[in-house]
Structure formats: C-alpha cells, structure tokens
C-alpha cells in the first residue's frame, strides 16, 4: 500500500504511523478471533442439538441414529462455520447461524 505524502508529514512520525497500523491490524485480528469463537460456539451448539434430534428418528438401532446424526453434522458444521465467518455485512452469517440453531431447537420441541 502506498503511503500518502501529505502536508502533515512533519506532525506524524513514521513510528507513530507504524504503531497505528500495528494497532489496526491487532484489532482486526481480535475481531476475527471473536467472530470465529462465536461462530464456532453457535455451530457446535447446533451440531449438538442435531445429534439429540437424530435420536428421535424412527429407527430401533441407537448406533444407526447417532451415525446418521454424525453424517449430517460432518456436512453442516463446516458450512455453518464458513458461512458465519464469511457473512460479515449486516451480520447475516451470524443471523443464518442463529436461524439454524433455532431450527434445531424447534425440531427438538415439536414432534415430527
């Protein structure tokens, strides 16, 4: 990135610019880490709820039910993390994650 040479050059020392850039970078990383932590927690909770929902499938074999739940989770969890992390504008990624989590909660409450 090209640094602009403005009239205020004498007032802003290069070290201060570098420190401010570093600070910005640190804040960006912290924001990303925070978002990732929230997204992962939400996705994990959704995955756990889906595993519980899978126990209500109409099969006798308990192992089969957990296996099928596992298949859904292995596909859904990475998608939820990626979508939640990618959709930053207006927080639509998080909203989508919340919708998925809410759907899993509702599926556990209502009979199917």
């Amino acid at each position: 990135m090209r640094m602009s040479r403005t009239k205020n050059l004498g007032m802003t020392a290069p070290s201060a610019l570098s420190a401010s850039k570093k600070n910005q970078k640190r804040q960006a990383v912290l924001r990303r880490l925070g978002l990732l932590a929230v997204v992962c927690a939400l996705s994990f909770l959704t995955a756990h709820l889906i595993m519980l929902d899978a126990q209500r499938l109409p099969f006798e074999d308990m192992r089969l039910k957990t296996d099928l739940g596992g298949m859904v989770i292995a596909a859904l969890f990475p998608i939820l993390v990626l979508v939640g992390f990618a959709g930053r504008r207006h927080g639509w990624g998080l909203i989508l994650g919340l919708v998925a989590c809410g759907s899993a909660v509702l599926a556990g409450i209502f009979p199917f």
Partner: peptide, 18 residues
C-alpha cells in the same frame, strides 16, 4: 475428510445432552 469425520462424529458430540 467428510467420511472420516462422519464415522466418528459421535465421539465428539455424544448423544447425552450437555
């Protein structure tokens, strides 16, 4: 990656509620 994770998903997410 998908099949390996799906096969053992129950180890990570047990069926008992947290």
């Amino acid at each position: 990656g998908y099949t390996g994770t799906a096969i053992h998903a129950r180890a990570l997410l047990p069926v008992e509620p947290f």
